[in-house]
């Protein structure tokens, strides 16, 4: 097993585990997740519940696919797209000063926080998501490079 393959496996396992963990509470309590999505103030009213119901399942299945190594390219593409979406949503609200709970890993609202505390947490979450996005991009790049070697026919 070469170093690139090992790196791809490690990233897949780590990213997959994080996405599975992030999906768990959201699947368990759609009303709380809908509430969190509503708080972002970026989603048309008719889409809030649909996102609350389906988005966690996309996270879970993408995470499972990464961990199992089945459909890894598609899962890596989905996690990349989701992370871009999360960063954009959080970043936009951070820039306009709309302090909200991220809901990234938990839908349980903690004790009340000041706007400054929430904005500080949002900064941390954005940085975390950027780190995860970098990992997902590396995974995509590794799989992208791996693909021609797999599909190239001998003698061609």
């Amino acid at each position: 097993m070469n170093a690139k393959k090992l790196l791809a496996i490690l990233i897949s396992l780590g990213l997959g585990a994080i996405f599975i963990y992030a999906s768990w509470e959201k699947i368990g309590d759609p009303p709380d997740f809908a509430h969190l999505i509503y708080n972002y103030k970026l989603t048309p009213g008719s889409l809030i519940n649909l996102l609350a119901i389906y988005l966690p399942w996309v996270e879970l299945l993408a995470g499972l696919a990464l961990v199992a190594g089945l459909g890894r390219r598609g899962a890596a593409a989905l996690t990349t797209a989701l992370l871009v979406l999360f960063i954009a949503a959080l970043g936009f609200n951070y820039l306009r000063g709309h302090a909200i709970e991220c809901g990234c890993f938990s839908v349980v609202l903690g004790p009340p926080k000041t706007a400054e505390q929430l904005l500080g947490e949002m900064r941390v979450r954005i940085l975390e998501d950027l780190g995860l996005l970098a990992a997902a991009a590396i995974l995509l790049a590794l799989d992208w490079k791996r693909r021609p070697a797999v599909t190239t026919r001998p003698g061609s």
Partner: peptide, 8 residues
């Protein structure tokens, strides 16, 4: 990749 993503 697109097919896998759509399947998921």
């Amino acid at each position: 990749m697109i097919l896998e993503a759509l399947a998921l």
